[in-house]
Design a protein around this nucleic acid. Sequence first.
DNA 1: AAGGCCATGTAACAAGTTACATGATTAA
DNA 2: TTAATCATGTAACTTGTTACATGGCCTT
Lengths: 177, 177
Amino acid sequence: MNELNPTAAAILGFLDAGELSGYDLAQAAAEIIGDFWHVTRSQVYRELAQLTARGLVEPGEPAARARQPYRLTDAGRAEFSRWIATPPPPEQVRYPLLLTIAFGAWLGPDRLLEMAAVHRPDHERRLATYRSYLADGGLDHYQRATVTFGVGYEQAVLSWLDQLPGILAGAPARADG
Amino acid sequence: MNELNPTAAAILGFLDAGELSGYDLAQAAAEIIGDFWHVTRSQVYRELAQLTARGLVEPGEPAARARQPYRLTDAGRAEFSRWIATPPPPEQVRYPLLLTIAFGAWLGPDRLLEMAAVHRPDHERRLATYRSYLADGGLDHYQRATVTFGVGYEQAVLSWLDQLPGILAGAPARADG
DNA sequence: AAGGCCATGTAACAAGTTACATGATTAA
DNA sequence: TTAATCATGTAACTTGTTACATGGCCTT
């Protein structure tokens, strides 16, 4: 039997709580794990189809608006339990702004700093959200662990943004470009 | 004309320095931007084929070991210059360990902490590398900017790993699972 | 009862990964 | 001179993204 991929595994994980449609699952994923594991609706439907074919999930009663809920089978629960016990691979960061900066000589420091500044409000907003989650105290230990990562990450990004002007000050731009 | 994707753009960016083969390009990418923009050799070859078709790049003289170098065309340089002037989209973080932690009740805190600990040496090593880059002083302003991000990021991860035991202490595991 | 929005899903395409193939050099 | 390894690349498959389609629900 094939390895479960992390997206499929997350779907099983969510279904453990009860029946959910593809739409629900995509929403749950966006809200709960979206900041460190992005999943689109299309992926969810594809995975549901495959999980059904593998007998890890089964369709429930269709409902209004073509809603098709799914539930976990025993095999699905077993497979998830196997998946979560396997050590997770390293993370990956994809940061287009850093790419732009890496070739930043084409633009020069001023343009780069403008571009970087645009992203700041997003990070501030997310940091505030995470902090309020922690302050409100409605999280369990596991959620607190992931949200705490978010706080540290956003703080790191913001502090880096603070340093940027100093780092790039006086950087030469290409003569041509 | 189609948007340039970031990987294709990076290839053009590297070729600005002179002729390079697909293999060279993959290496350069891994070394210089690999920590925030992962690129595989297969992708490089595919992009080179497309860039050639679009006239943004052209093959140079084939050499030993089937080596096929490419060089930037004027159109390629122009396209890159257009690309780098467009504001980069937000970053994406994909962190399987956080996914595991999000469903951590299936495992309980002890197993989670073991899994997390496994990753620590990698982050320590990377942090040390970035710091030595900065200390050695051989970087230009733009490289310093990206490496400084790396330092902040790795510090954030390590400090989060330090906090984890405290956060997860006493977390309940599932009765069943 | 018409218009707009929401929930649901599909289809086509683009990007990313893994496994394999091949011939040149280098080392034993 | 054989084996190992390196540089090069291709092919097949999996994941991820974008754009579209459809019909129920709600509001006026």
